[in-house]
Design a protein around this nucleic acid. Structure first.
Lengths: 338, 338
DNA sequence: CTGAAAGCGCTTACAG
DNA sequence: CTGAAAGCGCTTACAG
């Protein structure tokens, strides 16, 4: 049933029905109530495509994932939060997957030209990120999950990666650890560079020399955590503490430690950054793992919120947040062996 | 730039341009080439909302997730595959999250009435699933990931859950295991019921009595795997083998075994069902875990394909597939202790 | 507070 | 093979 038919059935004009359903103020309350009730009863819903054509709004927000459409556990949480928030305003999420950064840029051009989305969410930015410049040039509104440098201000939500890893490092140093390893992400990305800077700063504060052998980078997977930790343990002077960039890396690290006949937490302290996966809790690991905790889901919800505000005209420079990260002490951070 | 302007710039009618860009046959090849080239150069893209309004197609496929928008690792993989396939045909994926089954039903009504999607993907069906009846009643095309009973035929892709767990059980029995535990999902769902039936059938084949204490159900998380396995180990007659419903459950199970001072694979054999997560490979666990392997991503791609075929008019009964599941032997399935 | 009518930007029978 | 025109189902100035 379309608007015309619905309106005539309830004896009103299409104009009035449209206004009533969109919540415009100039409709009499009784009229609105009558319209909404009838729509419910007769099952009338405005055709979304027509609405979009008429208003010029797409009613959707896009998000592009690189790497063969391989959503990881992190993307799921972000998406979950985003979706929860946008749902409330009836905004759809449009998911695209691409292979390369070039494809990703092409995807934004396409989304912008076809008016398929009103805004996009950009994630895992590089320190200097071409995609940001492109989106600004295209005039396609966007919110970044993470931070980056750019000429013009833009909306972003980031967590305090510097502070998180600095605090973890500082805490371990306080426990007497002198050789602290870090499993980091690719430092082309801002978040990994920030973490590395936090790590170095805290080492320095404590009079510890950074050792390049203890600072490794790779994907946040169980496998890479395992492999890098095996590398640490093979050193002539292995670390007494490992900071893992993610829960997945921590899983691999603990496995490598066990295989080496050592005890995670006791022989080698562990701190992991935890994006809070509902299915993998640091409390349930053995030993329970000390984490720098920052729920990705909550960030996703907030990013959705920011995107909506952006579309309502709030200036990007008013939409910039950095969230603190909490260090949660558990069982995996014992004092350094004497 | 809209169609009218673009057409006049290149000296053709909107009609011809539209036909050229949509790949209609009645346009002269040279004309088409000229149009496509000009579109590329001038950056013209049809407005997607207008296209949809005119054609009556939404150009999107919906998928709804229950449970507070909590995409798990399984949903990520399914989505990744789906997205990869649909991307090729320029079909968007619309993600909705809801709390309850009731909300999910409401979501389908809404999607159908507002013509927001052309089809939906239904997942994790119950043995008798109301949602299927609803979608059939609404006339909204759909593909089910999994199987269910229904009056009318519908499109689905499922894996051979019965065969997978039967084979795993049979293999363990062949190794001399007499007490084989199963960590299953909620048997309201078809997949879990099928697995349970496969398990029982294989036990019976081997003259083994099912023991309800060895058959437990729960979420596929590390935590639940841990807890249920601790329960198994506390039995007066604990199992010598555990079949875990997912890699997450297996992680928890192995942890519980280790904590009990036992050795996973040697003291207690492990088989896990593996949906193939790129970041958590059974080869990297210690010991490497024997799995029933079935890539969820590949299933997602195929489901996307089936949805497209459905929209092209293939009848649902021609779109029904059950994929075999491969048992991959690794290190975690040693013969039963004598 | 309500309605008639133009317009959003496409597609597609129909005519040539 | 190409084009003029109606139509898809809304929204929203404009008029009352």
């Amino acid at each position: 049933m379309n608007l015309k038919e619905f309106a005539s059935r309830i004896g009103l004009s299409a104009t009035t029905v449209s206004r009533a359903m969109s919540g415009y103020p100039e409709v009499r309350p009784e009229t609105r109530a009558r319209v909404l009730e009838a729509a419910e009863k007769l099952g009338y819903r405005p055709n979304i495509s027509a609405q979009r054509l008429a208003t010029g709004r797409a009613g959707a927000i896009g998000i592009v994932f690189q790497g063969g459409g391989r959503f990881g556990p992190h993307s799921s949480e972000l998406m979950g939060g985003l979706s929860t928030r946008l749902q409330r305003d009836g905004i759809d999420i449009l998911v695209s997957t691409v292979e390369t950064e070039e494809d990703e840029m092409a995807a934004y051009r396409r989304l912008a030209a076809s008016k398929r989305v009103d805004a996009v969410i950009l994630h895992t930015p590089a320190c200097k990120d071409e995609r940001i410049a492109l989106l600004q040039a295209l005039g396609l509104p966007f919110v970044v999950h993470g931070r980056s440098k750019a000429e013009k201000p833009f909306a972003f939500l980031d967590i305090d990666n510097f502070g998180a890893i600095a605090e973890a490092t500082r805490y371990l140093a306080g426990l007497g650890h002198r050789r602290i390893a870090l499993i980091n992400g690719d430092t082309a990305s801002t978040y990994a560079r920030d973490r590395e800077n936090g790590y170095r700063a805290a080492l320095e504060e404590n009079g510890l020399m950074p050792d390049t052998a203890l600072l490794r980078r790779g994907e946040f997977t169980d496998e890479t955590g395992f492999r890098l930790t095996q590398g640490f343990l093979a050193l002539s002077a292995p670390p007494t503490a490992v900071i893992a960039g993610s829960m997945m890396s921590a899983l691999g690290a603990m496995r490598a430690i066990r295989i080496a006949g050592l005890s995670p937490g006791t022989d080698i302290a562990i701190v992991a950054h935890d994006d809070v996966f509902p299915y993998l809790s640091p409390d349930n690991l053995v030993p329970a793992v000390t984490t720098t905790q920052s729920p990705m889901r909550a960030a996703g919800e907030r990013i959705g919120d920011m995107a909506l505000r952006l579309l309502q005209g709030e200036p990007p420079e008013a939409l910039q947040e950095v969230w603190p990260v909490e260090l949660i002490l558990r069982d995996s951070t014992r004092p350094a062996p004497a």
